[in-house]
């Protein structure tokens, strides 16, 4: 399968196979006018299978969710057909309006218009907690 190389944009590589579509929605890529490619189950020497997302536009995407979902993902920034930057997303100290608290006793489940904020409380174990009730976040809470 051939996908055209991109000139200016972002390649999100080494996404765990099966997570690509979720990330596509989490990053709001369905709202873009530029060409976006989601490649599922691409062969990978390291992972066996992986998903890849290519965005053909130099956008300033909010990539904070990538670090929360999987800091082993690789982000490549492409300019004029050349990769100018490659990095693994950092664990964000705080994630805002990306996931929602699932604790039925938390005010954030009933208060309209509330900002859903989770803070990194344990970097080693990658644990995020709701600032309101301190419940542990799970990536499936998206």
């Amino acid at each position: 399968m051939n996908i055209d190389a991109i000139t200016d944009g972002i390649v999100i590589d080494h996404i765990k196979a099966g997570q690509g579509m979720e990330l596509y929605h989490d990053l709001g890529l369905e709202n873009l006018d530029c060409s976006v490619a989601l490649i599922k189950n691409a062969p990978s020497k390291k992972m066996g299978k992986k998903d890849i997302i290519k965005v053909n536009a130099a956008l300033d995407l909010n990539l904070q969710i990538l670090g929360f979902i999987d800091p082993d993902i690789t982000v490549n920034i492409i300019r004029n057909g050349t990769r100018v930057e490659k990095f693994h997303p950092e664990l964000p100290l705080e994630i805002t309006n990306v996931i929602k608290c699932r604790n039925p006793r938390c005010i954030s489940t009933v208060e309209p218009g509330i900002t859903h904020i989770f803070k990194l409380t344990d970097k080693e174990k990658r644990i995020y907690r709701c600032i309101y009730c301190e419940s542990k976040a799970k990536s499936k809470d998206r």
Binding site: C106, I107, E111, I131, Y132, C133
Partner: peptide
């Protein structure tokens, strides 16, 4: 408040 975090809000 019965909901956790309400005073923080």
């Amino acid at each position: 408040h019965p909901k956790e975090g309400a005073p923080m809000v």
